[in-house]
Structure formats: structure tokens, C-alpha cells
């Protein structure tokens, strides 16, 4: 593989008993690239995502981060290689405040005073400053998504993996999220797994479509949207509405 690829998978396969959730996937992501992963429910996007993050150990094949084989590594080891992960369901410390959550993340990379500043900066960026003292467990789903994103970005990782970041968000929150993702993609490589087509159209360029555990198409978003085969397997009427 060329060395400007930050993440690659080779023949990545994940089986659950007789079910093949991810089937021989060869995927590559360049440094600084923003890639969206699309696909209908059960296409294997999230399983593929979990194989990248170490939450699942693939049955066969490999995952390489900047050429280093990280297949089967534990999540914290992958994170410590500079990978920021936002899971499908917001994963937060519910009993403490928004600020404390983000500060804990910032503390991974910064000393105490800097971590405080970084946490405040990320709260501002993600539009959750007004919620700073609120207990995270009491927030709405969309707000929790933004807090988790702020936590991921506070660590300033060169590779950001986001699993359905727009789920449960209001229109305003989604717009802010799109701006944030685009801004992040200027400094880091980003993979976004998402269903929300309006959101996808705002951020996506080169896009990978999954179907039945395998890569179905890889092309620019406009091509994907006008691809009849893709429409048939996934987009259907949504594509017409979005167009």
C-alpha cells in the first residue's frame, strides 16, 4: 500500500456463526480524507466500523494504520495510536457534567491548565457551552451526540471515526455538526457512517456504499446518488426527495 494511506483493510472478514457480516473488504483511506460510509440496515457498516476500532476482532483479514498491522488490537491501544472514536450510541460518563466529560478527554493530551482551556474551546465549538454544568445523563440525545463529538475532538486525533453522529439531532444541531465535520476534515482523516441523507449530502465527497457485508460502490457522492443500483438497494425514494 502507498504510504499516504492512513487506514487500510485487506480482505477483512467478520463472521458471526454462519452469518458473514463483513465479507472480504478491501478499504483504504488517505491522510486528511473525509469518507462517508453508506448502506441499508444490516449492510455491515457498523460491524466494519467495530473491526476498525477494536471493539470486534475480525475473523480474518487485516486492518492497518499507517502501514502498521493493528488487527485484533484492543480499543485503548488503537485510540492511543491517534484514533478518535464516536460510537453509534453516545458513550458518556452520565453522572458528571458536560464540562467534566470533555475535560477528561482533553486531559489525555494536555496538562491540567491546557486541558481546561481545550475543554472550554471544544464546548464552544460544539455549541454546548450553555450546558457546561448540566449532568450528561439528563441531556437530549442530540446534545449527547455533540458532547461525545467534543470529547473525541478534544483529543485532536489525526484519524476520526464517527458512527451515526447525526442520529437524533435537530436541524440546527445537524448543521453545526456538518460544519464541525468539515472543519475537522481539514486537519484529520475522517470516516463517517451515516443514514441521514440530508447530512450526507452536505459533507460527503468520495463515498463508499456497503451492501451485504461487502463494498458495493465507491464513487463521488453525486455519482452515488444518481446510481440506479445504489438507489435500488438503499436510497429508493429518499434519493428522489433529497435530490
Amino acid at each position: 500500500m502507498s504510504e499516504n494511506y492512513i487506514l487500510t483493510t485487506e480482505n477483512l472478514t467478520m463472521r458471526f456463526g454462519g452469518v458473514v457480516a463483513v465479507d472480504n473488504v478491501n478499504f483504504s483511506l488517505k491522510e486528511g480524507e473525509l469518507r462517508c460510509l453508506l448502506g441499508p440496515n444490516g449492510a455491515g457498516k457498523s460491524t466494519f466500523f467495530k473491526c476498525l476500532t477494536g471493539q470486534l476482532t475480525p475473523t480474518s483479514g487485516s486492518v492497518k494504520l499507517r502501514g502498521q498491522d493493528i488487527t485484533g488490537w484492543l480499543t485503548h491501544d488503537i485510540v492511543n495510536q491517534g484514533v478518535g472514536i464516536k460510537t453509534q450510541v453516545p458513550n458518556l460518563f452520565n453522572g458528571i457534567s458536560v464540562y467534566e466529560n470533555i475535560r477528561m478527554a482533553a486531559r489525555r493530551k494536555h496538562l491540567k491548565p491546557m486541558a481546561r482551556e481545550k475543554a472550554e474551546e471544544m464546548m464552544e465549538k460544539c455549541g454546548v457551552t450553555h450546558l457546561a454544568k448540566r449532568e450528561v445523563g439528563l441531556l437530549a440525545h442530540g446534545q449527547r451526540q455533540l458532547v461525545e463529538l467534543a470529547m473525541v475532538l478534544a483529543e485532536e486525533p489525526p484519524l476520526v471515526l464517527l458512527d451515526e453522529p447525526a442520529a437524533g439531532m435537530t436541524g440546527d444541531e445537524r448543521d453545526r455538526l456538518a460544519d464541525l465535520v468539515l472543519e475537522t476534515a481539514r486537519k484529520a482523516a475522517v470516516i463517517v457512517v451515516e443514514h441521514d441523507m440530508a447530512f450526507i449530502r452536505r459533507i460527503a465527497k468520495f463515498t463508499t456504499v456497503f451492501n451485504r457485508g461487502a463494498i458495493f460502490r465507491e464513487a463521488m457522492i453525486d455519482e452515488i446518488m444518481s446510481d440506479r443500483a445504489v438507489q435500488e438497494i438503499y436510497l429508493g425514494k429518499q434519493a428522489d426527495v433529497a435530490a
Partner: peptide, 24 residues
């Protein structure tokens, strides 16, 4: 201490602690 906060973090949410890069 920071160590103690991480321990409590692990008690609260092991997965999130791991996603922050802590070896639980």
C-alpha cells in the same frame, strides 16, 4: 488524583474509558 478519576470513570463507563485510551 487523575488516577482516581480514571478509576471512577472506569466504574461509571468502561467502554468510554477505553475509548479515551485508558487501559482498564
Amino acid at each position: 488524583s487523575d488516577f482516581g478519576r480514571v478509576s471512577v470513570g472506569i466504574r461509571e463507563n468502561e467502554e468510554r474509558s477505553s475509548l479515551l485510551g485508558y487501559d482498564i
